[in-house]
């Protein structure tokens, strides 16, 4: 089983806050991390390999420092890693990103399952997985929460939708995106750490991928960000006063007065 995991290095942004005085981002000590959702993708790839044998290849497109992210996932079980890095790739939207990833996966030639995270925490789009599937011309299943079985060129998965779960069967090769419910990623092993230190991570540039420069990076992007701004936090409400019982009572009275709830 040849498994490819796509992952991205992102700023660890959950700590990002807005300074109310200057209305700007507070970003003390933000370091780059592997996109959290992609750690589930990697773990699932490693588990498939452990169950059915095979190889896990991690691929990331990003600036040279994204190599750190690839070393990190070698320590947690990836067999090989490839960095797609070229100044021509900069500024890519999801269309250009998925095109670049697809070219790299085509170059690998052998692949059965391609796993992406459900979304990144910086771009938040969740579009790269499904777009990649179309670029490769293979089936796609989003929001996978369990891989039930892989057999005879088919894979049966459970995926999350709004009101519950769907059980879906897909032929291989296929692209899936995974949600965090799927597993608990492991910590690096000592052996893994040693392997990560010595691993050689090839860098594939635009030339090695043989891509048309008009299809990658900013030039290959259909969308443009024309403005970024901070959201307005709307209003300040009322903190009720008095002892708890009278607060509870006055809350119900206010809600009834405003006809938000019915009653006497």
């Amino acid at each position: 089983m040849n498994i490819v995991v796509c992952l991205k290095q992102v700023p660890g942004t959950t700590k990002v806050n807005i300074d109310p005085q200057t209305n700007t981002l507070v970003r003390q000590g933000i370091k780059n991390i592997v996109n959290p959702f992609d750690t589930y993708a990697l773990e699932e790839g490693v588990r498939i390999k452990e169950r059915y044998e095979g190889k896990v290849t991690a691929i990331s497109m990003g600036p040279p420092q994204a190599e750190e992210a690839l070393r990190e996932v070698i320590s947690t079980g990836a067999d090989e890693a490839i960095l797609l890095s070229d100044s021509a790739f900069a500024g890519a939207d999801t269309l250009a990103t998925s095109h670049t990833l697809a070219r790299a996966i085509n170059k690998l030639k052998q692949y059965d399952i391609i796993i992406c995270g459900r979304q990144t925490i910086d771009g938040d789009t969740g579009q790269v997985g499904p777009e990649l599937a179309e670029m490769l011309g293979i089936p796609f299943v989003a929001y996978v929460s369990k891989i039930e079985e892989i057999d005879n060129g088919y894979m049966r998965v459970k995926r999350m939708v709004e009101d519950g779960h769907e059980v879906i069967e897909t032929p291989l090769p296929t692209v899936i995106t995974v949600v965090k419910e799927i597993n608990v990623p492991r910590l690096p092993s000592l052996r893994g750490l040693a392997k990560a230190r010595s691993a050689v991570i090839p860098i594939w540039t635009a030339q090695e991928l043989g891509v048309d420069k008009n299809m990658v990076g900013l030039s290959g992007s259909a969308t443009r960000v024309i403005r970024v701004f901070f959201p307005q936090r709307v209003h300040h409400g009322e903190i009720l006063q008095g002892d708890l019982e009278s607060q509870a009572n006055s809350l119900i009275d206010k809600l009834r007065e405003a006809k938000i709830i019915s009653g006497s």
């Binding site: 938040d124 403005r227 959201p231």
Partner: peptide, 10 residues
């Protein structure tokens, strides 16, 4: 984007 910390117009 960024978990709702920033808005972007595209």
């Amino acid at each position: 984007t960024f978990g709702g910390n920033i808005m972007a117009t595209i």
